[in-house]
Design a protein around this nucleic acid. Structure first.
Length: 103
DNA sequence: CTATTGACGACAT
DNA sequence: CATGTCGCCAATA
């Protein structure tokens, strides 16, 4: 499995997300210097080798939607709820509040 | 090199 | 609010 530099950067950023908070694909793209690569970011997350260890489940869509998860969307929801993040109608409740910005 | 694919985003309808 | 369209980007075939 060849890991590209791009993926490494994405996974590294993921680890900075505090427990109980979330971030968006867009925010990650912005921080990594590729503001329009949100889509590519999502793909990179999916290729993450060591799942729950790298909090790829704390990444959601910019509109509060859940996005997806390699291990099954249910798994993602379970992990988030476990950290105190509530899901309502397929979206993170009050996500703007829990959104983590790398600044 | 080109085509296809996808855990996305912005905007129009 | 729900869908559809189009643009973007990196990985793969």
């Amino acid at each position: 499995m060849r890991r590209t530099e791009f993926e490494i950067k994405v996974w590294a950023a993921l680890k900075k997300i505090p427990r109980g908070r979330v971030t968006t694909y867009k925010e990650l793209a912005r921080i990594l210097g590729r503001p329009k690569a949100a889509r590519a970011i999502g793909n990179a997350c999916g290729r993450n080798p060591d799942a729950p260890e790298t909090p790829c489940h704390r990444v959601i869509k910019s509109d509060g939607g859940l996005g997806g998860y390699s291990g099954g969307i249910n798994k993602k929801i379970a992990l988030l709820k476990k950290e105190g993040v509530k899901i309502l109608k397929g979206k993170v409740e009050n996500f703007k509040n829990k959104l983590y910005k790398f600044i």
